[in-house]
Amino acid sequence: MLILTCPHCGIQAEETELHNGGEAHLKRVGPDGSDEEFEGYMFARRNPRGVHLERWRHAYGCGKWFIAARCTVTLQVFGTYAAQTTTPPDHIVQAVRAARPDWNPTEEGASE
């Protein structure tokens, strides 16, 4: 049972109060995108064994979306932050690197 702290209301919510929305920081491909770009946006997923930046909605709480940096193997949560950003904020990057020095958010976060 995952327990994540909603950065909007500060509540330590458990999984049953939350709704997962998959990989974060996807860049939307609109009408101008090529077939390849659109396919990448819709389907190609990082699905890492390791640090995953993922969207969660505090569905049974304040209703706001946030992003969690979480390891999919140890389930360690490095931090959560509001969804209104295109890249993970510095404090999150630092928190992850404290445990995983090699972690590179831009490289890992990019969708090819």
Partner: peptide, 12 residues
């Protein structure tokens, strides 16, 4: 509903 590689049972 979340990405996971732990092969463990969860509860809810």
């Amino acid at each position: 509903h979340f990405n996971n590689f732990t092969q463990r049972g969860s509860w809810h």
